[in-house]
Lab assay of single mutants.
Amino acid sequence: MALNTPQITPTKKITVRAIGEELPRGDYQRCPQCDMLFSLPEINSHQSAYCPRCQAKIRDGRDWSLTRLAAMAFTMLLLMPFAWGEPLLHIWLLGIRIDANVMQGIWQMTKQGDAITGSMVFFCVIGAPLILVTSIAYLWFGNRLGMNLRPVLLMLERLKEWVMLDIYLVGIGVASIKVQDYAHIQAGVGLFSFVALVILTTVTLSHLNVEELWERFYPQRPATRRDEKLRVCLGCHFTGYPDQRGRCPRCHIPLRLRRRHSLQKCWAALLASIVLLLPANLLPISIIYLNGGRQEDTILSGIMSLASSNIAVAGIVFIASILVPFTKVIVMFTLLLSIHFKCQQGLRTRILLLRMVTWIGRWSMLDLFVISLTMSLINRDQILAFTMGPAAFYFGAAVILTILAVEWLDSRLLWDAHESGNARFDD
């Protein structure tokens, strides 16, 4: 018995066209964080690309023209004298008006014999932002004059995390709450300039795509075929072959399989920071003279006294001054041990922890910024005066060393310790 099946006739004509040209192939790229070699397709503007294995951002879609970056830099340069030299806060102490600005706080630190601690604050609040705007201006002028731009481009990517104007702005709020127990506070004209400078700096850093600047100024022929001998440069993120001198053909720094002496430098910085954190938390970090009496505060006791007036601000200072430094030390110690013992479990967790400490590390400088600003506000000789204690130097040095330890660690070593050939990683 035959089955009668109805015929289905399409209502619209289906047209099949042959592909007349070869589909576009992607360029081969190595991930600078996990060293995976993959094919990167062509990316349009405002599109980002991520590593298929570790999800690290390979290409950032946010990109401004150099002219727009230069305009932002010149605007920031105009704001800087007002943000640093004009009063941020006014207080009335014992019937006398006192003005506080950024430069005055750094000068008070240096004047009291601790120039190293003052230079830490100076670099993060004044030096690094000033280098940022002058570097962008150098790129703008240098591109037109045919100057060598490689050193500036190499420095810009590392400079971003040292620009800490946003953290200093939080420190202004913390210092205001600490001082309000002794005097009446009012915002100064410099505060508005400083807030504007923070906003412009944040926007500029978020749109400063150094890798795209490398592509514009020093374009290189990408690798179009897969080759395990391809290496990625950690300076400019170019994937290719080393030249005859073993250097990256684009930025001219040595092109090595792994960062040289990464573990040794990381261990040295980490152990030194552990040693410095002990006096930083045991010795007094601030000293207040009130009517001839002397009151010393460690980091913890200062947080407890701050909690009596504002528990939320005390929580912020606790996280930045105690929780973050010790968390960074514990995480980095764990990561280094996992590399030495070739741990194969929990790779995803370790990668996330490394990215976390990379982002939060700079916030530990908050305590030094609060001390710097408070020193310029309260300084009335023996009637009422505020000065920093010996722990300030140890704390600042420990924070900087932990930042350097994270920067010096080559994250690809975590993958080397893991089993080879993993296309995915999980716990």
Rank of each mutant, 00 (worst) to 15 (best):
M356T: 12
P151Y: 03
T402H: 06
A269V: 08
L132S: 07
V357D: 05
T134K: 12
Q220Y: 13
A398Q: 05
P279Q: 14
L306R: 00
G315Q: 14
V399F: 05
T5W: 06
T239W: 03
S308V: 13
A70S: 12
Q382M: 12
G146V: 03
D243S: 10
V317L: 02
F238G: 12
D181G: 03
I91N: 11
D426I: 12
L277I: 11
G20K: 06
F333V: 12
V331R: 01
F194P: 01
F318M: 09
V179W: 00
C236G: 01
R25V: 08
H90Y: 05
P254N: 03
T298D: 10
V198M: 12
L77F: 05
E22P: 08
F393D: 04
E157R: 14
T239N: 11
L366F: 01
S193T: 06
F395C: 02
R68N: 02
L366Y: 00
L352K: 14
G240M: 11
A2L: 04
S286A: 12
H252A: 06
F425I: 14
L93M: 04
M72Y: 03
V152E: 02
C31M: 00
G246A: 12
L353F: 14
L169H: 02
A128S: 14
A196F: 14
G127S: 11
F141N: 01
R362D: 01
M109L: 10
L414S: 07
G346Q: 14
R150W: 02
I303T: 14
I131A: 06
E419M: 13
M164F: 02
E161T: 12
N4M: 08
G142K: 01
P32I: 09
I253D: 04
R59P: 07
N422P: 14
L271N: 12
Y182D: 05
P32H: 07
V370Y: 00
D227F: 11
L40P: 06
G26H: 11
R258P: 07
I322L: 12
M109T: 09
G246H: 12
T224N: 13
V16T: 09
G142M: 08
V370D: 00
Q345I: 14
M356G: 11
I185L: 11
A115S: 13
R53V: 07
S206G: 15
V399C: 13
F341L: 12
C233F: 00
L278Y: 02
L165S: 12
L213D: 08
C31L: 00
L368P: 05
T5L: 07
N4C: 06
C266K: 02
R221D: 13
F74G: 09
S48R: 11
A405K: 01
I19P: 09
M80I: 06
L94G: 01
F333G: 11
G142I: 05
Q104I: 03
A187G: 13
W214C: 15
V357Y: 00
Y394S: 03
L3Q: 08
L277V: 11
K111P: 04
R68G: 03
S364G: 13
I316L: 07
P325K: 01
L169C: 10
A70F: 12
G190I: 02
M332K: 08
P52Q: 04
G146W: 03
V198N: 14
M72W: 02
S372I: 04
L401G: 10
F395D: 01
H237W: 12
M80G: 09
S338W: 14
T327Y: 12
V195R: 00
L337V: 11
R25P: 08
W84R: 13
I403R: 03
N209S: 12
I378C: 01
G235Q: 02
F82Y: 09
T202E: 15
E407I: 11
I177H: 06
T15F: 06
L208Q: 14
P242V: 13
L335A: 09
Q108I: 15
I253W: 02
R68E: 03
D27G: 06
T204A: 10
R259C: 12
M155K: 01
S305V: 08
I98N: 03
H261G: 08
A175H: 01
A187C: 11
A49L: 07
P6L: 04
I299G: 12
K328Y: 00
A320I: 15
L404A: 09
L159R: 01
L401S: 11
C31T: 00
P151M: 03
N143W: 14
S135R: 00
N148T: 05
L154A: 03
T5H: 08
M332E: 09
I303R: 00
S273F: 00
R245Y: 11
V232Q: 14
Q264G: 03
L94Y: 01
N101L: 01
P32N: 06
I311V: 12
I322K: 03
S193V: 05
I311E: 15
V16C: 08
F425A: 15
C51S: 01
V275L: 09
A175P: 01
T358W: 11
L77D: 04
I339Q: 09
A183K: 00
L197Y: 13
E296I: 12
P32G: 05
G190F: 01
P222G: 14
F341T: 11
I253H: 04
I299Y: 01
Y168S: 05
K13L: 09
